[in-house]
C-alpha cells in the first residue's frame, strides 16, 4: 500500500472519529461519545508506549505509572483548589517526564527480562504510594474536585472535551511520525534492530534511549491528565500493573511497526471488551482466547493487515 492510500485510510478514520459527537447526539446515545473519548485517551497512552516498545525495543511493563502521575498532578492540584488547566497539565507532563527520567536512568542500564521487571517494580512502588496516601483517598481514591479550567474550552461540555482529546490524538500522531523518522528516531530504531552494529558505527545508545523514555513518559502523562478529567475520579488503579499490561496489549495487537497501530489496538481491544461485557459477565473468558489468536495470526498487528508494509 502506498503512502497515498495510507493517507486516505487515515483521513477516513479521523473523519469517522470527528463524526461521533453529532451522530451520538442525533441518536441520543451520549454513551458512545463517552466510550470513544475514553478509547482515544487510551490510544494516546498506547501510542506513547509504542515509541519505546515498538520503535525503541524497550519493553516497559510499567507505562501506567505515567497515566497515574498525570492524573494525580491534576487531581492533587484540584484538591488544593488550583484548577487552572494549563498549570495542571504542565505539571502532569513535567512530573511524568521527571519520573520517567529517574526510572529510565536506572532501568535502561538493564535489558531483556530485567528491564521488564524493573519497570514493573517502579510502577508498583508508585501504585502502593498512591494507596498509602490517605490525604488523597488512599486506595478508594477521590472525586476530582473540578475539571481542568481552560477559559475558552469547557471540559464539562462533553463535545468540547471530545474534540480536545481528538486534537491531542491527531497532534501526537503527527509528532510521533516526525519523531520516528528524524535522526533521533533512526538512532533508537537502529539500536533496537542491532545494538552491536550501532555501537560500532559510533552511537552510544543509552542517552537516546533515555530521551525516548522521557518523551514517552511525558506524552503518557498528558493522557493521564485527560483520563482523570474523563472519569472525574482519581484512583491508584490508574497505575495498577494490569493497566500497564492492557497498554502493552493495545500496542502489540495494533502493531508496533507503525505510529497509528496502537490507536487501532486501543479501539479493537476496548470495543471488543465493551461488546463482550454487555453480553455476558464472563467476557474475559472469551476475550483471552481472542487475544491469543490475534497475536498468533496477526504477527504484525492490525496495522499490518490494514496498511500492509511498514512505514
Amino acid at each position: 500500500m502506498n503512502s497515498r492510500t495510507r493517507a486516505i485510510v487515515l483521513a477516513t478514520g479521523l473523519a469517522v472519529l470527528a463524526a461521533v459527537p453529532p451522530v451520538a447526539g442525533l441518536l441520543n446515545q451520549p454513551f458512545y461519545l463517552d466510550l470513544v473519548r475514553r478509547i482515544m485517551i487510551f490510544a494516546i497512552a498506547a501510542l506513547s508506549l509504542n515509541l519505546i516498545l515498538g520503535y525503541g525495543g524497550m519493553i516497559s511493563f510499567g507505562h501506567a505509572a505515567y497515566l497515574g502521575i498525570g492524573a494525580y498532578a491534576v487531581g492533587v492540584l484540584a484538591h488544593y483548589g488550583i484548577d487552572n488547566g494549563f498549570l495542571q497539565w504542565a505539571l502532569a507532563i513535567g512530573a511524568s517526564a521527571l519520573v520517567a527520567l529517574v526510572i529510565g536512568a536506572v532501568s535502561i542500564r538493564t535489558s531483556g527480562v530485567y528491564f521488564i521487571m524493573i519497570t514493573l517494580a517502579f510502577t508498583q512502588m508508585l501504585y502502593y504510594l498512591g494507596i498509602s496516601v490517605e490525604e488523597f483517598g488512599g486506595d478508594d481514591g477521590m472525586r476530582l474536585a473540578a475539571k481542568s479550567q481552560f477559559g475558552l474550552i469547557d471540559l464539562n461540555d462533553g463535545n468540547a472535551f471530545y474534540y480536545l482529546v481528538l486534537a491531542v490524538l491527531v497532534l501526537f500522531l503527527f509528532l510521533g511520525h516526525r519523531l520516528v523518522n528524524s535522526r533521533f528516531g533512526m538512532v533508537i530504531r537502529a539500536a533496537r534492530s542491532n545494538e552491536a552494529r550501532t555501537r560500532s558505527i559510533g552511537f552510544s545508545p543509552y542517552p537516546y534511549r533515555l530521551a525516548a523514555f522521557v518523551i514517552a513518559g511525558a506524552m503518557c502523562g498528558l493522557a493521564g491528565a485527560l483520563l482523570v478529567n474523563h472519569t472525574a475520579y482519581l484512583t491508584p488503579e490508574f497505575m495498577n500493573w494490569t493497566r500497564s499490561g492492557e497498554l502493552m496489549f493495545m500496542v502489540i495487537l495494533g502493531g508496533t511497526a507503525s505510529i497509528a497501530g496502537p490507536v487501532l489496538g486501543a479501539f479493537a481491544l476496548l470495543l471488543v471488551e465493551d461488546a463482550l461485557s454487555g453480553w455476558t459477565q464472563h467476557w474475559q473468558l472469551i476475550l483471552g482466547p481472542l487475544l491469543v489468536l490475534s497475536v498468533l495470526f496477526f504477527r504484525r498487528g492490525l496495522a499490518g493487515l490494514l496498511f500492509g508494509k511498514n512505514e
Binding site: N181, S182, G202
Partner: peptide, 14 residues
Amino acid sequence: QAHAGSSFRFWGSA
C-alpha cells in the same frame, strides 16, 4: 549520521 553532527534532532526527516 553517526559522524555528521548531533543526532538529538527530533523533527526533520533523516
